[in-house]
């Protein structure tokens, strides 16, 4: 068989093969190096900026995990502990009791606990919350905006491309550094700013 090709041809092909092989390694090194040069040591995770979120319902419908990895969080220092909580009670409630038809939350995820007259504490039960943002919206529109949405990193599988982030209309999603995985609300200042916005704008 060798006589057909001849030694010259074989070595020429081999030479070409080696050249191309080097080219391939150089190309791989170049791309890898370029990417590694601009890379970061820390991993990133997805998080919501509560100041940007407009409380649409994508967070409950678009997560690859069911129910969604997005959960409502209560900021106790901001909460007014109201007897009539806008986030807890449906606008058409019959009476101020925890009967399901009086509640805004579709999954009964908010716990209402009496503290002392006239204060009530509101807790979110993470395993029931589906991140629909109904309570968040009501609390922001009429209350102190102490409810807000965050990605719960115990549930979130940190998709390479979060499917909610793709759908979020307000661009509230970001990759944040691994060691600052939450964007928590401490200060009620955001509420004050928001209260100036005319309701028509929302």
């Amino acid at each position: 068989m060798g006589d057909l090709n001849g030694p010259d041809k074989v070595s020429r092909i081999e030479f070409l093969r080696q050249g191309l092989s080097r080219l391939a390694s150089v190309a791989l090194g170049l791309v890898g190096g370029l990417a590694a040069f601009g890379s970061r040591r820390e991993n990133t995770v997805w998080q919501i900026d509560p100041a940007k979120c407009v409380k649409c319902e994508h967070c409950s419908t678009d997560c690859v995990v069911a129910p969604s990895a997005v959960k409502c969080v209560q900021s106790y220092p901001i909460c007014g502990y109201c007897r009539y909580c806008f986030g807890y009670f449906h606008p058409h409630y019959d009476e101020l009791t925890s009967a399901a038809e009086n509640q805004l939350c579709p999954t009964d995820a908010i716990e209402r606990v009496f503290v002392e007259d006239p204060y009530w504490e509101y807790n979110i039960e993470m395993d029931k919350c589906i991140g629909c943002a109904k309570c968040v919206k009501a609390c922001e529109d009429f209350g102190n905006a102490s409810f807000y949405l965050q990605v719960n990193h115990e549930i979130c599988v940190n998709c390479n491309n979060c499917s909610i982030a793709m759908q979020c209309p307000s661009d509230a999603w970001d990759r944040v550094p691994y060691d600052e995985p939450y964007r928590l609300k401490h200060e009620p200042r955001q509420v004050a700013e928001l209260s100036f916005e005319s309701p028509g704008k929302k």
């Binding site: 900021s75 990193h153 939450y182 928590l184």
Partner: peptide, 19 residues
């Protein structure tokens, strides 16, 4: 300490899978 905040009773703010 990286986060200090209040949260629902049952549970701490869970960290993402470790680095």
């Amino acid at each position: 300490t990286i986060i200090q905040d209040t949260t629902p009773r049952d549970g701490q703010a869970p960290l993402p899978t470790s680095q």
